[in-house]
């Protein structure tokens, strides 16, 4: 998969701060078609609707620790849904314990970033996903 910065992206985080930071970093990388959601529970209907409209999200960037539906639960749901299971999914987390890494890898995450991170790290992780 080549990195196409015109792809439709959704950024999911319960903290406005992190959504703003990630969206800004993505825009600086050239992405322009970015939507935001404040929880996995808010994102899921947006993802379903986008798929039904024929213009699905092509890349999901999600925080892990969110109050209603965690990033891990969202990832599991995506991977269990035939028509969207191949969607690239980047998990962003503040928790870097080995046990957590194993959980997301087993759930089929495309890549993950541990906070705090610099723009270069985000770019590098995204490039690896679409290499």
């Amino acid at each position: 998969m080549a990195l196409d910065t015109s792809m439709k992206v959704i950024v999911i985080d319960d903290m406005m701060t992190m959504r703003k930071i990630i969206t800004k970093m993505l825009k600086n990388m050239g992405f322009s078609n970015i939507q935001e959601a404040d929880d996995g529970a808010t994102a899921w209907p947006m993802i379903e609707e986008a798929h039904a409209s024929g213009e699905p999200f092509q890349f999901i960037v999600s925080d892990w620790n969110m109050p209603k539906m965690s990033g891990l639960d969202l990832l599991i749901k995506i991977r269990a849904t035939e028509e969207m299971k191949a969607t690239p999914f980047l998990m962003i987390t503040a928790e870097a314990e080995q046990s957590n890494v194993v959980k997301v890898v087993q759930a089929g995450v495309s890549n993950f970033i541990v906070k705090p991170f610099k723009p270069d790290t985000l770019k590098e992780k995204i490039e690896k996903i679409f290499a």
């Binding site: 903290m15 406005m16 701060t17 992190m18 703003k20 930071i21 800004k24 620790n65 987390t93 503040a94 928790e95 870097a96 541990v114 906070k115 705090p116």
Partner: peptide, 27 residues
Amino acid sequence: MLMEEYKEVTDEIADVGMEICNITMGN
């Protein structure tokens, strides 16, 4: 943190402190 200049506390920066706290805790 937001790479944008703010002159006062607004809703836009209201959760910056909580996010810094969250990342500190996670690490």
